[in-house]
Design a protein around this nucleic acid. Structure first.
Length: 616
RNA sequence: GAUCCCGUAGCUCAGUUGGAUAGAGCAACUGCCUUCUAAGCAGUAGGCCACAGGUUCGAAUCCUGUCGGGAUCACCA
């Protein structure tokens, strides 16, 4: 079970991302000028640049960008063609980048001059390796991000992969907008589930260890968790055969009672139980660390439920004093959130012990102490939407600093074509198995292609890992996080079409050209080909796509972008020779375009957690 | 029962604060490798944007209702 999943993006969080990244200075000028002109036509009114709607233009029409006139017809009392003519003439007069314009219905379609495109390429190429990216300043906001927060009784599965891919990608995206990002992980390392693995190990292992069996630690422990479930099922069945009700049988099964005793013993600090717990968790962490290592994620700090599960009590006591919480007759402590559209919520059991949310309150303060964050993101599945609404509301009422900068990145579940993953039915897709499988497919595909002669074995293996990783990560990240997604193992290993390997392939192609291309010296006076304009237009969007992805906490925006850029480039590639181009100005323009696209693809892939190979 | 999320091509998904003829990829069919990497490119076919109303110059997008799918509503995590 993943600790958490996420959903809505609060408006106030976006206040954070102050800078509205606008690389598109021409579009800004366009808006400003249009607003200025339109304001003059509206009696007593004012049109702001933001009100000017700029649209992309459908393929069949001429032009680079379109001003939508409809919103201003009523305001100005003019007909579309009348307003369009006037606005078009005004804009062309005042913006030298505008080459021509046409009017189609209520749309003023503007075409930029060739000089605009060549100067755009000059700009992009000049900064191409850092184009679209921002460096964090020393006083940049410090954003804490928590993921994937697994339980320590089972290995990672497909659901964790979505979590990890989102967490990693979002971290990098936020960094690319100039923020400082601190990744942390919270381990749910105690309680009933962990006790189950321990009980089963005592019963069945006869002292076996990951070392003695050669099984990866997290899988080793997970196997005993499964063994426990099987045993439990049998015992329940046996009791029911003796005539007990299912409810009673589930409570009275000897093994589950042993689990309860074990959990109590753990809480009482029983030395033997603690030692076993340390040992088994140690195996799990070894396994997790291996998985995290090859997935490329690392954490600034680890938090453990076992260390904090009792810590929330003080905070709850303070809240009680302040009258934010109240005590019921049985001694349990509650908060009434009905005025916020939520329910009453228990914070402390009647016996004084803490529950899940108590722990979360504690961890929120711990994080604040440790990192003094400006914002805190929890990457957790959408099944916990309600939990986080409650948690954030509580923290707000407690008056915690930055309590208005807490964000639940809620993502939907991953399902299989056959339905949901169910551990009971053995349909859970294991993360390690899946990852290995992807690499194997990459290996086989590369063997079929046979383009890798000259690479060492180590380089080849690295490449297979890159490509397998790309296929898997892209397949998952291209879907809007908040939506549930269907994971089809067959399609996920596809390397054609809208896939990670397709984008990688495009990068490798570009790298190949650049290796043979020589020095690049841009020349003046070149008039770009339509396909080149198309590539440049897409290239220019990179910065704003990153910003959108950051604002919405949605890497899928970037996944789409990277694919579109690669697709545009491939079209250009098929129509415009680069190395074989005899005209010097054209060849230089194209080489610079290749270099720029190569860098943006590489950086864009990086933001998704994908490496860009030089060959493939 | 209450609350929240989702419903777009056969399949998987895009679709900016409402804007032009709803887009990709996969699968299917047709072409293109003596030319910079064919993991590519070009083309054909595929749609009552779940359904019904409403708002407006204009709705896949906003509102209401219906149907279908999912999640949550524990002194579980």
């Amino acid at each position: 079970m993943i600790r958490r999943k996420v959903l809505h993006f609060t408006a106030h969080f976006q206040v954070f991302f102050l800078f509205f990244c606008s690389m598109n200075t021409v579009e800004n000028s366009l808006r400003t000028l249009a607003a200025q002109f339109l304001s003059g036509l509206v009696p007593g009114g004012e049109v702001s640049p933001a009100q000017v709607l700029l649209n992309p233009i459908p393929a069949d029409f001429e032009g680079d960008v379109s001003v939508v006139l409809f919103p201003f017809l009523k305001l100005t009392g003019k007909r579309p063609d009348e307003l369009g003519e006037a606005l078009g003439a005004f804009l062309q007069q005042n913006l030298c980048e505008i080459g021509s314009w046409t009017l189609v219905k209520g749309f003023l379609n503007i075409t930029f001059t060739p000089e605009y495109w060549t100067s755009l390429l000059k700009d992009v190429y000049a900064q191409h390796q850092r184009f679209g990216l921002r460096e964090a300043t020393a006083d940049a906001p410090n954003v804490l991000i928590e993921y994937p927060s697994p339980n320590t009784n089972k290995p990672l599965h497909l659901g964790h992969l979505r979590n990890i891919f989102l967490g990693m990608s979002l971290s990098r995206i936020l960094e690319a907008t100039g923020q400082r990002v601190t990744p942390v992980c919270l381990y749910n390392d105690r309680g009933t589930n962990i006790s189950k693995s321990m009980v089963a190990w005592q019963k069945f292992a006869h002292g076996a260890t990951p070392q003695s069996t050669g099984i990866k630690g997290d899988h080793f422990v997970g196997d005993y968790y499964v063994k426990f479930s099987d045993l439990y099922k049998e015992e329940v069945k046996a009791l029911m055969a003796e005539g007990k009700t299912e409810e009673d049988a589930k409570k009275q099964a000897p093994c589950i009672q042993e689990v309860e005793r074990m959990t109590v013993a753990w809480e009482e600090g029983d030395a033997e139980v603690r030692a076993l717990w340390e040992q088994m968790n140690g195996w799990v962490y070894e396994g997790f660390n291996e998985s995290f290592g090859r997935l490329g994620c690392r954490f600034e700090k680890n938090y453990y439920e076992s260390a904090v599960y009792n810590l929330g009590k003080e905070t709850v006591a303070e809240g009680l004093e302040k009258g934010i919480f109240f005590r019921k007759d049985d001694g349990s402590i509650w908060i009434d959130l009905t005025d916020a559209g939520l329910d009453e919520k228990v914070l402390l059991r009647s016996n004084g012990t803490s529950i899940y949310i108590t722990q979360d309150i504690a961890v929120a303060y711990e994080k604040q102490r440790d990192f003094n964050y400006d914002a805190s993101i929890y990457v957790v599945g959408n099944e916990q939407d309600y939990h986080f609404k409650v948690l954030f509301e509580i923290l707000k009422r407690l008056g915690m600093k930055a309590s208005d900068k807490l964000y639940h990145l809620s993502y939907g579940m991953v399902e299989l074509p056959t339905g949901k993953m169910k551990s009971r039915e053995g349909t859970v897709v294991d993360a390690d198995v899946l990852f290995d499988g992807m690499i194997q497919v990459a290996r086989e595909t590369a063997a079929e292609q046979g383009k890798l002669e000259g690479l060492s074995e180590a380089e080849k293996e690295h490449l297979y890992t890159m490509v397998g990783n790309a296929a898997l990560r892209y397949f998952i990240l291209r879907v809007d996080p908040k939506k549930k997604m269907i994971f089809n193992p067959q399609e996920s290993i596809d390397f054609q079409g809208q896939t990670g390997p397709f984008v990688q392939y495009t990068h490798a192609r570009i790298a190949s050209i650049l290796r043979q291309g020589g020095d690049i010296q841009l020349k003046d006076g070149y008039v770009p080909h339509p396909k080149e304009v198309q590539v440049l237009a897409t290239l220019g969007r990179f910065g704003s796509v990153i910003q959108t992805a950051a604002d919405k906490m949605d890497p899928s925006a970037l996944a789409s972008y990277v694919f579109e850029l690669a697709r545009d480039f491939n079209q250009f590639y098929h129509e415009c020779p680069v190395l074989k181009e005899s005209d010097e100005a054209a060849r230089m323009f194209r080489l610079a375009l290749c270099a720029s696209v190569g860098s943006v693809l590489k950086n864009g892939l990086y933001l998704l957690g994908i490496e860009a190979p030089e060959r493939m």
